[in-house]
Amino acid sequence: MNRFHWTRHFRTRHFRRARQITVLGVVLAMTAIVVPPATVRNAPTALVKVESVRGIDHEPHVIWILALGSDARPGQSVVRSRADAIQLVGVNTKTGAATAIGIPRDSYVNIPGQGRNKINAALYFGGPQLMAGAVADMVGIRPDYVFTTGFLGFRAMVQSMGGITVRSKYSFTDVVMPGGYRVGKNKLNGLQALIFARIRYGLPRGDFDRSANQQRTMVGILREVRSKADKPGFMERSLLSVVKNMDTNLRPSELFMLAQALTQIQPDKITRCVIGGSTGSAGAASVVFPDIGQARSIANRARKDATLNGRC
């Protein structure tokens, strides 16, 4: 249908304005050269202003979602394994802003009813509910939804989109990526995206940089979804696949409304933070002692509008 109309939404306001000025400049320059002065004419070209608005009804309009990547092996339950990726994402459906808070999986924290342990064990001990509780204890925000996917589900999801593009901060190698991952844009298939989100060897800050790569992966997925959301039937087909392949207690209509609300996120309005900390050991395990003060500070600033003012 109207591709031009959709393309407009995916640009930042700044870029859009710059582009409009550029286009207008080109048009005016061409007009000055081509058009004879002061004559009545039937112009062979036209420039028409198109105004647009968008809105969605979702209460509350700020949604917090805990996105988990489970390390379940074939035959294991994705919601009763350890969480390899832990991202708490706040979305403002009115402004299109979002804040992603990355939690290093080795964060050594209190898990309700289980004592101190790595936070990723909460999924194993008590499924998504306990994981949500552990994150709430650590960060101070209780997620409204917990989305969990395993290796196969993640690969299939990226593959069904035709791959994603991520921007890497570092170059590193892996056998699945011929030529290795480069600094800057990388076009990845499902397996390459999975490795990009999981690998920590070769990254200077190990677990922290891996968490940042998981956020880059999420942004890549979101950009891909937004670029295809205008294709008739894309959202419905994707959601049907989700309904068939995901365990959820949401009704399909709730899922439809939630997914449409999430497409309101503007990728350039996403703030990304990874909770810092120091590495050490607890017993025989190497762990991260997270900076709880920083985690609470980020959460407090982003809690109401999913917008993070100031630095991480």
Partner: peptide, 27 residues
């Protein structure tokens, strides 16, 4: 007027519009 309207069903069985992404041009 062009774009998308998003609809879902209410408990009453009626359908309502819960989201919009609409453009308008005039010549």
């Amino acid at each position: 007027i062009s774009g998308r309207l998003l609809l879902t069903r209410m408990k009453s069985g009626r359908w309502h519009i819960f989201g919009y992404d609409v453009a308008r041009s005039a010549v």
